[in-house]
Design a protein around this nucleic acid. Structure first.
Lengths: 231, 231
DNA sequence: GACTTTGAGATTGTATTCATAATTCATAAT
DNA sequence: ATTATGAATTATGAATACAATCTCAAAGTC
């Protein structure tokens, strides 16, 4: 009897699910700018769907804080105020610290190896002054640590915050000095991870984030990033 | 010229908002038991609304993790597994620790006074062995600390987790010994708060939660609480 | 008798329609 | 000229209608 080739499962996501992801992506990447109104008909037409699934998606995004829903007046992309950032960062810090502790308890040698490779690669990008690639590695390292913590609740909460905050785009101009500091912090991160020293990793991750936040605030103050609205 | 009395703003909540709150309450309090299916028509009829706003509410609750939506198969009240609990508690711990630190930085003398009163009241309920009243005060103290931390992001994340976890009902039988321990921890909490010692408060809150969690797990193991499903 | 198959009924997913509130813009009044 | 008013338009909120999918039992097959 000939073996049937396993046909690729047809995955048909529901429209509202698809819409949630697409809209979230558009908001986080800045395709949809904060403050802009989101007329339902308009958007529904753009996506080629009816208003019903779109509205369902908007409700979810509103509960995530990415969209602001005003009764009878519709949806707008949430403004990210400086206060929002100042609120979000300590929470992110706490979560990241936790992820460090949990990761040290659970991470496998193989996973550490992967992170080390990413780290080395990141360092090379640093030396070559390749910012975007550097940031990609950077992001991926933090993702790997989060993954090693192996806690879905933690991951989803961190992701949610991270998504909200990422809308503040500050990456363009990072000072040379700050970059050095960040790299040095990353050396500490690797060291703590290899030593499986949860307390140390937790501490340095938190410090890393605080410094990052300082940079963001500085950038915002000087550049007056459009995405941000002074509170 | 006579001063016009400020007329109360007319607030008309949308149905989906109302439904979100009502359903969340029903789930958290256990009115809707985990695992039960939630046929849309049925539920919509019960609330006297159409399926449209109900579906919007279900999507939001699903994103909060209280409901599980399976494509084309509908909604069920999420099961809370032991693993879910084990995941949620460290995250709650981290958030609670943060709330302690922030609270110590910001709390006013007046707010400390309120908490102290609640604490004293709680102790009286403890001595009178009035469990429900004790728990109410207990809950309120933690709420007040959270409020003092004055961080909306933190509050909403904590509330979300707390809501999920609260579905594990374990309060019925708490051991005398554990109750003593909890009260003693609460004495420490008050002391740290009065001293505005963030590190100490943070530490004791975390420990408090760990112990609470141990009790929950113990209860579950012995009683096999219906709400919980062994993973 | 056990296992598919199939189709009616029920349920969910999406579109459309209707109702109601908000906005706009022209007009009138000060 | 500026503000206030109100009808027309537009957008949102909710209900209904239709389409796609699933469930489950009855019939059929081996």
């Amino acid at each position: 009897m000939t073996e049937l080739m396993e046909p690729a499962m047809i995955v048909r996501r529901s429209l509202h699910d698809e819409l949630i992801d697409r809209l979230r992506e558009m908001i986080v990447t800045g395709d949809l700018e904060p403050g802009t109104k989101v007329p339902e008909q308009n958007l529904a037409a753009k996506f080629g769907v009816s208003r019903t699934p779109l509205r369902e998606a908007l409700k979810v995004l509103a509960s995530e804080g990415l969209i602001t829903l005003t009764p009878n007046k519709g949806a707008t992309i949430s403004q990210l105020t400086l206060e929002d950032l100042e609120e979000a960062f300590p929470v992110m810090g706490a979560l990241e610290a936790l992820s460090g502790e949990l990761a040290c308890e659970r991470i496998s040698d193989a996973a550490i190896g992967v992170i080390r490779q990413l780290h080395d690669q990141m360092i090379r990008h640093y030396q070559a002054k390749e910012m975007p690639e550097y940031f990609r590695c950077n992001q991926e390292i933090h993702n790997q640590i989060l993954a090693a913590a192996d806690n879905a609740t933690l991951t989803s909460m961190y992701r949610s915050l991270s998504g909200r905050v990422r809308r503040a785009r500050y990456v363009a101009n990072i000072s040379k000095k700050r970059w050095e500091q960040a790299v040095s912090e990353h050396e500490e991160i690797i060291a703590a991870l290899v030593a499986r020293n949860g307390a140390a990793l937790s501490e340095v991750l938190k410090r890393h984030l605080v410094n990052k936040f300082e940079t963001v605030k500085e950038t915002i103050r000087s550049a007056g990033v459009g995405n941000l609205q002074e509170a």
